[in-house]
Amino acid sequence: MRFRRIDPAPSLAHQIHFEGTPIPFAEGDTVAGALLAAGIGTFRTTPVTGAPRAPYCLMGSCFDCLMRIDGAENRRACMTPASNGMRVERARGPRPAGEERMP
């Protein structure tokens, strides 16, 4: 499934970095919104079975859009406003129990 923006001419001046790839976003986008608009379908794999997951509720309830954002584990991409230069990675399985990678 591919999402498209309703705004026909969005201003996409800024970027986040998704696992090294620049992703443009419009003013007011959440991280989840920017990634979905860019066609990213898998946001994380689950800690229990490793199954791929994507945003479901887009309102902070379902926790299916958890990502590592600027080094912080398990952030909800749908509740995180995109900001220029933000580094975003998929959450792969369980977050580590030990030292968290600091931004």
Partner: peptide
Amino acid sequence: ERGQIVVTERVAPF
């Protein structure tokens, strides 16, 4: 007698 429980996000088994 009340008891409270706190739950964290899932972390790798330790």
